[in-house]
Amino acid sequence: MSAINVDLAVNGFITGLFYALMAIGLSLIFGILKIVNFAHGEFYMVGAYAYTLVALAFGVPVWVALPIAFLVGALVGWATERTLMRPLYAGYTSWGLMRDEYAVIVTFGLSLFLINLVDKVIGPYAYRGPPLVETSRVVLGPVLISGHRLLAAGIAIAVILITAALIKWSFWGQQIRAVSQNRLGASLAGIDTAKASAIVFMLSGGLAAFAGALLSPVINASPDVGIFPAVKSYIIVVLGGMGSVPGAIVASLLLGVIESFGAVYLSYQYRDAFGLILLMLFLLFRPQGLFGEKGREV
């Protein structure tokens, strides 16, 4: 593999790690509520602002600002679940039919609300977050990379692994998976499904916000900064199979690498279209994603 290809692969992989931070949460939400959260990008945006403002305005050290961003995102996620998601499962039988459209409208509306609120309250200007380290160039064989990006990639790996382990082995992780498989069965088995959903939203909001914070030195915080990563995570949850966390992680890395190579070898202008085209093709011809099995009919 030539030097440039190694560079493309490594950088694509790192981008994929950031995608994974975003997509895991979206996938968990789909798993537990069977909805797509169209406000997911705004969780990311909130994190980018929380990190940047806390660090710049209050002079909080970046290593403290990072977990603060996670907490703020978790709080927004929790509030979203509390105020808007309850009708999806709180015994509104006649909502059964409406739930898909309700979910789209409410999350879409929330997304518009948060974007415009931040635009008015903080302003439309972009803020650059402080990097974790100032080293601008690290040379690793053929790969050139900024110190911040390298460190952020390491942190992302750690967070992804911890999250995956929590979902797999922790008590609440198991509860969440039970609810995702069968909400009714889980509630009959005495699992607090409302609490499981709240936890999923907190985790999802926290992870997305964390991604926003990590990337804010690279992609400056602005009101609509979340749209782009949100679209990426839609693509990923579809490729990985809606609701599957391992699928989302693999698909994230794959998309990162595909885009990295596609931008160079296919078309730079259309680098963002590859994933969208994949999304459409998958939903039309293979809705179960890359790894999923074909579900029951009707």
Binding site: F30, K34, V36, V104, Y234, I235, L283, P287
Partner: peptide, 10 residues
């Protein structure tokens, strides 16, 4: 539902 929304969004 969500599948249609995502496809048309793309």
């Amino acid at each position: 539902g969500p599948y249609l929304a995502l496809t048309t969004l793309s």
